[in-house]
Every structure is written in structure tokens, then in C-alpha cells.
């Protein structure tokens, strides 16, 4: 029944294990990034107890969680879709007896499972040991963290789908990839929590879907959001899922109709 979906998830999951060095380097890369950020913040804090209502310990935990999530949110399927369009593999994928959108959603799920298992979890564990992170999170917060992260994976899926399908029109994907990566890194709160941005910019960021990718789940896990705050996040996520779904459906339908497959 659902066998066909699990088949794709499984294959996509297995695919990532082939490149062991690649995975190892991703972990090392994340740890270096976080360490640099934490050392800078340590210097900035000096003897101060709190900046913008956040003390140094909380900020360190924030970065550890945020950067563990960052890999999932920045490495997605838009590269895969773009290469598929460019080298014509999309021909074969459209011949599978399954809806193209569902095919890629399953592909993304398999990819996320693998990223969580072999990159995010190890990164987080290593960072916890390195920076003596206190892991006593509330059970309720962990539950909401998982829920919000799951919804943000759906959001990032649609964002990636839109960016990937844009390759049909631009015929080149490098610019799109860089744009997507920088949008997410800056606007998701991976570089710094929203509290550290100017109020106006923070307000704008709060409307956009990107904050819910990293900032919202991380602060929820740290217990910084009240129940009302969490409800607002969930409502915002549902609205964005609907909006992004509609946009990607329109782009998908027009792209598929006017498809001119390259190379024969």
C-alpha cells in the first residue's frame, strides 16, 4: 500500500551512507563553525551576565542546537532537482508511477533521516561534550521541538522544491543555490538569535517562514517560548505550508507543461 513511498525513503536513506568521508567532514565543519562563534561570543560577553536577555550558557546551547539543525535546513533536494533537470534524469523520474512531488517528498524524508542520524546527532553530542552543555530539557519542550522541526522540514521541502524547479526557467542553478543558502543562514537565526537583530528587522524576520526553520525550534527546546508563543509558531507554520504548497504547485504545473528536456 504505502510500500512505494517507503521504497523511496529507504533508497534515499541508504544513499548517504556511501560517502563516509563526506559525512565526517560535514560534522567537523559544523563543529569548527560553532566553536568559532562561541569563542567570539565568549570574548564579547567578557564579564557581562546577559546581553539582550540571554546569558552566555543559553547562547552556547542555542548555537549547539541551531547548528545541528542547520545542516538539515541548508543541504536539501534543490541541488538534486536542479541536476536532475540539467542532465535529463528528470525524464526517468517522471516515468516512475508516482506523483513527482510525492516522490521528492519521500526523497527528502529519507535524506533528513540520514542527516539526523549521521550528522546532526553526532554533531550535537560532540558539542555537548566539548562545551559541557546541560541536557536537562523539559519533556514537553522536547515534544514541541520535534513537532515544530517536523513542520519546518515540510516548509524547507517546499522552499527547496521551488528553488529546484526554478532551474527550468534559469537553466543554471548555481545562483539559486547560493541565494537559498544565504537566505536561510541569515534569516533563520543560525548566525545569531533574533534578539540580536535590530527590532524592525527582527519583526520582518518573524513574518517570513525562515525563522521557523532554526530559531523557533531551538528556542522552544530551550524553554524560551510560552504556550502562546508556541501556538503562534505552529499557526504561522501551517499558514506558510499552505502558501508554499500553492506556490510550488503552480510552478510545478507550469514547469511540467512547458518542459523542454535538455539533451535529446
Amino acid at each position: 500500500m504505502l510500500n512505494n513511498y517507503f521504497g523511496i525513503i529507504k533508497s534515499s536513506f541508504k544513499k548517504g551512507f556511501v560517502y563516509k568521508i563526506d559525512n565526517l567532514l560535514s560534522i567537523v565543519n559544523r563543529i569548527i563553525e560553532v566553536s568559532v562563534l562561541i569563542f567570539i561570543w565568549k570574548a564579547i560577553y567578557g564579564g557581562t551576565v546577559s546581553i539582550n536577555g540571554m546569558n552566555l550558557e543559553t547562547l552556547i546551547v542555542y548555537y549547539a542546537v541551531a547548528y545541528s539543525l542547520n545542516h538539515i535546513m541548508t543541504w536539501g533536494i534543490n541541488e538534486y532537482i536542479a541536476s536532475s533537470i540539467k542532465n535529463g534524469r528528470i525524464n526517468m523520474e517522471l516515468l516512475y508511477p508516482i506523483d513527482y512531488m510525492k516522490y521528492f517528498f519521500c526523497y527528502k524524508l529519507g535524506m533528513v533521516l540520514r542527516q539526523v542520524m549521521i550528522i546532526s546527532m553526532p554533531t550535537f553530542i560532540i558539542l555537548s561534550v566539548l562545551f559541557h552543555i546541560n541536557l536537562s530539557f523539559h519533556f514537553i519542550n522536547i515534544l514541541f521541538f520535534v513537532l515544530i522541526t517536523f513542520l519546518s522540514i515540510i516548509i524547507i521541502f517546499f522552499i527547496e522544491l521551488i528553488f529546484g524547479l526554478m532551474t527550468f526557467y534559469t537553466t543554471s542553478d548555481w545562483g539559486l543555490q547560493v541565494l537559498k543558502k544565504s537566505l536561510i543562514t541569515i534569516l533563520s537565526g543560525a548566525i545569531a538569535p533574533l534578539e540580536f537583530f535590530p527590532t524592525i528587522i527582527a519583526k520582518i524576520m518573524n513574518i517570513l517562514p525562515f525563522t521557523d526553520l532554526i530559531y523557533s525550534p531551538t528556542t522552544t527546546l530551550l524553554g524560551m517560548n510560552s504556550i502562546t508563543g508556541i501556538s503562534i509558531i505552529l499557526i504561522r507554520q501551517f499558514i506558510w505550508i499552505l502558501v508554499l504548497y500553492s506556490i510550488s504547485k503552480v510552478i510545478y504545473n507550469t514547469a511540467i507543461k512547458n518542459i523542454t528536456i535538455y539533451g535529446g
Binding site: G7, I8, K10, S11, V18, Y19, I98
Partner: peptide
């Protein structure tokens, strides 16, 4: 990147 049999398995489940 996967062994041939994995592609066959996927096709088995897709169809």
C-alpha cells in the same frame, strides 16, 4: 551511488 539490486528493489516497490 547504490548497488544495482537497490534500484531493482525500489522499482519493485514503486510498481
Amino acid at each position: 551511488d547504490l548497488p544495482v539490486i537497490e534500484s531493482f528493489k525500489l522499482i519493485g516497490s514503486l510498481y
